Amino acid sequence: MKGKVVSYLAAKKYGFIQGDDGESYFLHFSELLDKKDEGKLVKGSMVHFDPTPTPKGLAAKAISLPLE
């Protein structure tokens, strides 16, 4: 699924993505496929991810940034 980063707290390594389906997904650095892309996780960045339901809500897994 595609989505847009709505927040990312680099110090805490987490944030949120708004998916194309309108839902909010929890984003964690550990799910970023290329850790070098962390600096690109800023508000408004477009990402691809696997939407995954968890006991705490919806989460983004296997997060990647589109090729530039």
Rank of each mutant, 00 (worst) to 15 (best):
S24N: 12
S24Y: 14
L27I: 06
A59W: 14
F16E: 05
T52G: 07
V5W: 02
V47L: 05
E68W: 11
V6Y: 08
K36A: 13
L65C: 07
E38G: 06
K36N: 13
S24Q: 13
G15D: 00
G57T: 02
A62K: 14
K2R: 13
A11C: 12
F49Y: 05
K4D: 03
L67E: 13
G44A: 04
P55A: 11
Q18H: 11
D50L: 15
K12R: 11
I17Y: 01
G57V: 01
D21A: 04
S24I: 15
V5H: 01
F29C: 07
L33P: 02
K35V: 08
K43V: 11
E31Q: 11
K61F: 08
F49L: 01
D50N: 15
S24V: 15
E23N: 15
K43M: 08
M1F: 06
K12Q: 09
K2V: 11
F49Q: 00
M46R: 15
V47R: 00
D34C: 11
S30T: 10
G3W: 01
Y8N: 03
F26S: 03
S7K: 14
S24H: 12
V47E: 01
F49T: 00
K12E: 09
L32P: 00
V5I: 11
F29H: 08
A60P: 02
L41T: 02
V6L: 13
F26M: 04
Q18Y: 11
M46N: 10
T52F: 15
M1V: 07
F49K: 00
D37C: 09
D50P: 01
T54Y: 06
S64C: 10
L41V: 05
V5F: 02
D34A: 05
L58N: 08
H28F: 07
G15N: 00
V47F: 01
Q18C: 13
K40E: 04
A62H: 14
P55Q: 09
A10V: 13
Y14N: 04
T54G: 10
G15C: 03
E68N: 12
M46S: 10
S30Q: 08
F29E: 04
T52Y: 15
V6N: 06
F29M: 06
Q18K: 12
E68I: 12
L65T: 07
V6G: 05
T54D: 05
G15K: 01
Q18M: 14
D20G: 06
D50F: 15
G22M: 06
G3P: 01
Y8E: 02
L58F: 08
A60K: 01
P51H: 04
M46T: 14
Q18P: 02
D34G: 04
K4I: 14
I63V: 13
T52N: 10
P53K: 14
D37F: 08
P51W: 08
F49M: 02
G57M: 04
K13D: 03
V42S: 09
D34R: 07
S7A: 11
L32F: 04
I17M: 02
L32A: 01
Y8I: 09
A11W: 11
L58H: 07
Y8D: 02
P53S: 14
I63Y: 00
M46D: 08
G3R: 00
L65Y: 05
K43D: 05
P55N: 09
T52Q: 14
Y8F: 04
F16D: 02
K13T: 03
G44Y: 04
K36W: 09
M1Q: 06
F16Q: 05
H28G: 06
P66R: 12
K4N: 07
L67S: 13
K43S: 09
I63W: 00
M1N: 05
E31W: 07
H48I: 15
V42K: 13
A62L: 09
F29Q: 07
G15A: 02
G3K: 01
L27T: 02
V6C: 12
S24F: 14
V47S: 01
E68T: 12
S64Q: 09
L41E: 01
S7W: 15
L9M: 13
D20E: 13
L9Q: 12
A59R: 15
K43W: 10
A62I: 05
L32T: 01
Y25P: 00
K36C: 12
D20R: 05
Q18R: 14
K40F: 09
K36F: 09
T52R: 10
G19W: 02
G39K: 14
G44S: 04
K4G: 04
K4S: 08
V5C: 03
K2C: 15
Y8R: 02
G44D: 06
K43F: 11
V6S: 10
L58E: 02
M46E: 12
E38Q: 06
K61L: 09
A59Y: 12
L67N: 13
V42P: 02
K40N: 07
I17E: 00
L27Y: 09
L65I: 13
L27A: 05
G39S: 14
L27G: 02
D37Q: 11
I17H: 00
P55C: 09
P66M: 15
S64R: 14
H48T: 14
E68S: 12
Y25R: 00
P53R: 14
F26R: 03
K12W: 09
G15L: 03
F26K: 03
L67Q: 13
E23H: 14
F29Y: 15
G19V: 02
G39N: 13
F29D: 03
E23P: 02
K43A: 12
G19I: 02
L27M: 11
E31T: 03
L9T: 13
P66E: 14
H48L: 15
H28P: 05
G44I: 02
G44F: 04
S45I: 15
K61M: 10
L41F: 03
A59P: 01
K36G: 13
K12V: 08
L67A: 13
D50E: 15
K36Y: 08
L67I: 12
D20I: 10
Y14P: 00
D20W: 08
H28M: 07
M1D: 03
L33G: 04
D20M: 09
